[in-house]
């Protein structure tokens, strides 16, 4: 695709994204779901730096997400520090945590890495659950109700959240794209294709992967703060959840198209509304049916094309071109 066309398309997509909420009821359900689409797209994009570029299947990204959510919220509850400021120490803590967990685990490959990160997420959940004095323990923590406004990161309507989430997605995507086209990105891809060969040509594989993990962890923590200010209440089971966060962000990136810039966005645009649709259509029928239908849909997509929706789109086009 010619660069000019590419930029034109990006500009068009942005214009649509900015215009959409004005066509919807500002306090409503549709805007909330779109906020979640944007948030989860950003989370999957942050995951994509490690999971896509370096091909390290992390199943523990909830750890960084939760650190960010708790970091800013604890600072807000205990010291009255604005979440905008709390965002930074939260991100720093997320980056440091990613660095610490990467030191031993980045030497692991394949399933072992996935298992190690899975355990790390679970350890963080237990820490938050047990350290009640700091985190509020299993009863969870509430963002105090205050007069809405940009300064306190609280809004009555959904529309401001939409634009904040959109901004977050753009920032994370820009960072992802920047890394992808930088020296770091090429090193990461070399590692992905063949770690031994990468090492042989002089790439410090462990160090490269750790840098990617730190960036990814810090971004994920920042998004945790966004979630906290959006949801107003959370507990350890929510933000350190394996199915609802760790596996879901990986799934969004994988279903969309792992390692690509628009894969996580496509994945989130597909998965989050489908899950809602399944819930809306089936949840007043047999109990649990909505989750079953959602699960079956996912299995069908991955069976049809393990490389994700982007690849399905490509194949559809080729098939259409032939007839």
């Amino acid at each position: 695709m010619k660069p000019a066309l590419k930029y034109a398309l990006i500009a068009l997509a942005l214009a649509v994204a900015v215009a959409v909420p004005f066509g919807l009821e500002p306090r409503g359900y549709a805007t909330r779901i779109l906020c979640l689409v944007l948030l989860f797209a950003a989370m999957a994009q942050a995951w994509n730096i490690v999971g896509g570029l370096a091909n390290q299947m992390s199943l523990g990204h909830a750890a960084f997400f939760g650190i960010g959510a708790y970091g800013s919220t604890i600072l807000l509850v205990k010291y009255g520090i604005s979440p905008w400021l709390g965002l930074l120490p939260g991100m720093a803590a997320g980056g440091v945590a990613a660095w610490l967990i990467s030191l031993p685990t980045m030497r692991l490959r394949g399933h072992y890495f996935a298992l190690a990160t899975l355990a790390f997420g679970e350890v963080m959940r237990l820490v938050a659950n047990t350290w009640g004095g700091l985190t509020g323990g299993p009863s969870g923590i509430s963002v105090p109700f205050s007069k809405p406004g940009l300064a306190v990161f609280q809004f009555k309507d959904m529309r401001p959240y939409y634009f904040l989430m959109l901004a977050a997605l753009l920032v994370v995507t820009a960072i992802f794209a920047g890394i992808r086209h930088s020296k770091l990105g090429y090193r990461l891809r070399a590692i992905r294709e063949n770690p031994s060969a990468a090492e042989a040509i002089g790439v410090d594989t462990t160090r490269t992967k750790i840098i990617a993990a730190v960036v990814s962890g810090a971004l994920m923590a920042g998004l945790g703060t966004f979630y906290a200010q959006f949801q107003f209440f959370f507990d350890p089971d929510t933000v350190f959840s394996i199915p609802a966060i760790s596996v879901r962000v990986a799934m969004i990136a994988i279903v969309g198209g792992v390692g690509t810039t628009i894969g996580p966005i496509v994945g989130a645009l597909f998965l989050i509304p489908i899950e809602e649709l399944a819930n809306q259509t089936f949840s007043d029928q047999a109990a649990g049916l909505s989750q079953l239908v959602f699960g079956l849909l996912l299995i069908v997509v991955i069976l049809a094309e393990p490389r994700g929706l982007l690849e399905i789109g490509r194949r559809l086009w080729r098939w259409r071109g032939r007839t």
Binding site: E25, R27, G28, Y29, A30, R32, I33, L36, Q231, F233, F234, D235, D237, T238, S241, A244, E276, N279, Q280, S283, D284, A287, G288, S290, Q291
Partner: peptide
């Protein structure tokens, strides 16, 4: 009655609440 499944996830519970209201 409009019945909705919250699953075990607070995020989903809020989604369905918002949906029922809107």
């Amino acid at each position: 009655l409009i019945v909705a499944d919250s699953t075990s996830t607070p995020t989903t519970a809020v989604n369905v609440a918002q949906r029922l209201l809107t």
